[in-house]
Each structure stands twice: as C-alpha cells, then as structure tokens.
C-alpha cells in the first residue's frame, strides 16, 4: 500500500518533522529531570519545612521570599510543592511499574494462555476497562484509610487493563508470524516464546505506555487528593495542597493555582516524552515496512 509521495497528506517524515519530534522529546526529558531532581533535592532547595507553620505570614501573595506565596497557616507553598513532589512522583512511579508488570503478564496470558485461560482473561480485562475508577476510589477510600500503599494499589487497579489490552493486541499480531511458528516447531514452551521472543516486540509500546500512564497517574493521584481521598494531611501532595486552597479561591488566588503548575508541568513532560517516543516508534516501523 505504498502511496505516492506527491499527495499533500502523505510522504515520510521530513527533516523538519523529525526535528520537531526530537525537540518536543528533549524538552519533555529536560522538564521531567528538573521536576524529579527538585523533588529529590527538596530538603536542600526548600526555604522551610513542608509543614512549618508561620502564623505571622498567613496567605502572603508571591514575593521574593515566598515565590509561590504562603497558605492559610503561613506555610511556604514552594516548599510544600517541592516536598509534595516526592509523594506524588513516588505513587505515580511505583504505580506505573506495577500496572505495566501486571498488564504485561495478563496481556501475554490473554494471547498465549490455553483455551480456558484466554477467554477468562479477556473477560476480566473487559470488565476492568468498563469500570469507573473514581467510583472505585470512593468505595475503597470510604472503607480503608488512604495511605501511600493503598493509593499505589488504586493506581495499579485503574491502569493495568489498558496496558494488558495493548500487550494482548501486539502479542496476538506477533503470534501468527513465522519466527514464532519456528520457535514452536523447535519445541519452545509458550512461556519461553512469550517472554523471550515476543516480549521485545512489545517493549517499544510499553515504554510509550510507561510515560503516558505515569502522566495519567500523576493527574489521578492529584485528583484523589483534591477530593480528600489521597495521602492524608499534613503530608503535602500536589492535589492536597490545592485542596487547601479551594476555599480561598477568591481571596488568595495563588494557593489554588500555582501549586497546580507542578502537576501540569510534570505530566506535560511525560506526555511530550510519550508522544515523541510514539512518533519515533511509528517512523521506525514505517521504515521497516518499506524494506
């Protein structure tokens, strides 16, 4: 299906297009590294502790002393954002790894399991995909006190099925190819084929998924915290800080808006990385297809 390159909507990615992809990718990586370093080095960078109260400096607007201003009990918001990044990034990072691991296992099972396992796994994935997660979170957090492990579990529960579906689709595609048949003829077990032969084809998509899911989890975790279902105060998390500011939206604009920038910048960085990698993977596949 090679299309003539003269039509306006077609043709391979030109130099400018590739450059654009790489610039977005690079910007994403730089932003992410900055956000992660800032969270890791929070004790060095923060001007005060994240829960240090200063009742003489309540709800101060942004100034050279307090770049993001202070909240209702005089805590420095920039310090809280720096420390909050540790909680948010930890939950999203570990959640993403958990979700991809479980998703890969289930996706492979859905493609390589025996004839009883496959439909069963398919159904489970379908049901998981069709489940509204905010509701799940409400039910879970009304029953259990939300803590970091509980939140990580929620992230995994909310995301694994999407990963499993992607893995399953690619694995099913690969299963029909000659190299898999050759491995079967040589007597390789299905587990061996799945993990050693097919997994490398899944990997590029997994990397893209990793970036996208982590971005989504940062937003999801912040949303839960904002609803009061996240890590409990006074431990700062990005959504929790914004919850503090919800009641002062009209009187202290900075409390509800500036800390949110951390969420936006971090997940934007991850989305840029995901998009960039996706474009590169597609370009790679297209080149292989030409050959």
């Amino acid at each position: 299906m090679a299309a003539p390159a003269t039509l306006p909507t077609q043709g391979g990615p030109g130099l400018i297009q590739r450059l654009r992809v790489n610039v977005a990718l690079g910007a994403g990586v730089v932003l992410l590294v900055i956000m992660v370093l800032a969270a890791v080095a929070a004790p060095l960078l923060a001007s005060s502790g994240p829960t240090e109260v200063d009742l003489m400096a309540v709800r101060l607007p942004p100034s050279p002393q307090h770049w993001f201003g202070t909240d209702a009990v005089g805590r420095d918001l920039l310090s809280r954002v720096l420390y909050g990044g540790r909680v948010s990034l930890l939950i999203a990072g570990v959640g993403m790894i958990g979700s991809l691991t479980l998703g890969t296992l289930m996706g492979m099972l859905a493609a390589f399991g025996n004839r009883f396992v496959r439909p069963a796994v398919d159904r489970v994935i379908e049901i998981q995909l069709a489940f509204p997660y905010v509701l799940l979170a409400i039910a879970v957090t009304s029953a259990v006190r939300p803590s970091t492990p509980v939140l990580i579990l929620l992230m995994v529960l909310a995301a694994w099925a999407a990963a499993a579906r992607v893995v399953r689709a690619i694995a099913l595609q690969e299963r029909g190819k000659d190299y898999v048949k050759a491995a079967e003829v040589l007597g390789a077990s299905r587990l061996r084929i799945a993990m050693l032969h097919v997994f490398p084809s899944v990997l590029p998509s997994l990397v893209v998924l990793a970036a996208m899911q982590m971005a989504a989890m940062i937003v999801f975790e912040a949303t839960l915290s904002f609803l009061g279902m996240g890590v409990q105060p006074p431990t700062p998390s990005w959504g929790g800080i914004m919850l503090d500011g919800k009641n002062y939206i009209t009187s202290a604009w900075w409390v509800a808006s500036l800390p949110g920038l951390a969420i936006v910048v971090t997940s934007l960085a991850l989305v840029l990385i995901g998009d960039g990698l996706q474009a590169r993977t597609e370009a790679m596949r297209a080149r292989e297809g030409d050959r």
Partner: peptide
C-alpha cells in the same frame, strides 16, 4: 497534550 496533563480541578480553579 495540555488537556492530558492538566487536572480538571486545576483548569476549573
């Protein structure tokens, strides 16, 4: 990209 990264409560605020 922006819609994916900005939480509803932040855009709302």
């Amino acid at each position: 990209a922006f819609g994916q990264s900005a939480p509803v409560f932040w855009t709302g605020a």
